[in-house]
Write a protein that binds this DNA or RNA. Sequence first.
DNA 1: ATTCTCACA
DNA 2: TGTGAGCA
Length: 120
Amino acid sequence: MRIGEMVRRTGVSERLLRYYEEQGLLAPTRLPSGYRVYTDADVDTVRRVRALLAAGLPTTTIAQVLPCIRDDGTTLAPVCSDLVAQLRRERDRITDAIKELETSRGMLDAVIAAGPSDID
DNA sequence: ATTCTCACA
DNA sequence: TGTGAGCA
């Protein structure tokens, strides 16, 4: 499929799709016309990229992780053993982020509770 | 009609 | 990351 269908199937803009490619997250083939050609697997890849990006992982790390994810989407491939250490650090960073968000929520809860008439 | 690259009030 | 220009 070409980029137009990818946009429809992933909800990701052409701009971003091309950006992901630039970052080494996607590797569509090209038609003699220069048009990009994506596969069904690329649709799944974009979903994973979105999830990893939402988790705060930098595109450079995602580019390293993607080739390690088995086709089933859960298992890890053997070629990426050292990557586990890096991912553990990312995991810790996410844990800290959650902690910060929890305190922020706590502050908002206090402000809301102190409000005049908390209708909405 | 679609996609491509490049550039930025 | 959006938007628009100028092509193929």
